[in-house]
Design a protein around this nucleic acid. Sequence first.
DNA 1: CCTGCTTGCAAGCACCTACTTGCACAATTT
DNA 2: AAATTGTGCAAGTAGGTGCTTGCAAGCAGG
Lengths: 196, 196
Amino acid sequence: MTVREQLLAAAARVYAEAGYRGATTRRIALAAGVNEITLFRHFGSKETLLHEAIARAGAEIESGELPEIPVDPVRELTRWARAHLAHMRDRRALIRTCMGEMEEHPGIISSIDKPPVRAAMALAGYLRRLRDGKLAAARFDEQVAATMLMGTLFGDAMGRDMMPEMFTRSTDASLREYVRLLLRGIGVAVDQADDT
Amino acid sequence: MTVREQLLAAAARVYAEAGYRGATTRRIALAAGVNEITLFRHFGSKETLLHEAIARAGAEIESGELPEIPVDPVRELTRWARAHLAHMRDRRALIRTCMGEMEEHPGIISSIDKPPVRAAMALAGYLRRLRDGKLAAARFDEQVAATMLMGTLFGDAMGRDMMPEMFTRSTDASLREYVRLLLRGIGVAVDQADDT
DNA sequence: CCTGCTTGCAAGCACCTACTTGCACAATTT
DNA sequence: AAATTGTGCAAGTAGGTGCTTGCAAGCAGG
């Protein structure tokens, strides 16, 4: 691991837990195990370093794919939602910090806010395919339904450690119920025992 | 408005848009239109002031009530969700900042995180009453269903200005669709035109 | 009229911030 | 063997931070 990469990783880590102002060049250099001056020689300024570090951290995205031709909605959607939820949960500190500072540092969030938009698009497309394939019988707006599931997963990823009293069931049990509720909501026949 | 109240209001405002470190005593005093020394004479320290200011801002809560005996689920739930969403949306800057700093300043969030828990409890109770009153026919976990709607509203309140591409429908149209999807998900008969 | 009480002003303290310069040392490359 | 490169160390810049002290001005109630 080169010094540059150590600095980028340390910068993302320190930023996630301390924010822009809290991520001082001393702390980042200490976390990276290099001298503070080396930081400036590599990146010139704190701003440059943080922008590059967060853009790199936000680019690490690959939420699972949704099938082009739906066959088993409960299984397919549960699998996708589980991957998406785990992904958000792993990055919750970074996401929270970015959200809290988006008004003060709007340039930083631009590297983070695209993945969820793409995920919502993919999900909406899948829900539309469910309807077109006569698997979902109700009339519904697939964009809004996709936003609903995304918001639910987002709320779970952000809220479960902040407000544990609100989450009585386990992550996985909740997840399966989310999917069941949504699918029933768009008119998919759901039998209780079917999950994975 | 006394000097104390001006300082508390200004502190909450500045904190919401700049965070703990960004809410310097000079900025707060300037925003309140008083001298910086007056701030210290009243509150002794920045920490004391911010704690009191945020506790006060978080205490301003009154999300609408849900009826004890459900009659018209779509109407009642839409009304409640609209009030709740508007409330979160109005306070989104403060909520975002608190979330971003909850790991660094855990004491601050303790004044903010109770209202949503109470709201989720009230909502879960209402959904249970729907089921007990035979208005909701499906088998479902009312806690998880309540968390789902709360997460959806939270995601809408936080995400609509951050990722406008994700929200194609208006706030109110989305809201009505959220409620419809959830109610159909728990087995309530929903006719398309019924909303308010 | 005078006595508290609140407030503002000027100045300053010690500390932290991002960032710079100059020099020395080592490894790698030429 | 020489030169380039990357790094660390010491020192220092100018500015912002929370917070303190001393003193004067206003404004109320006795």
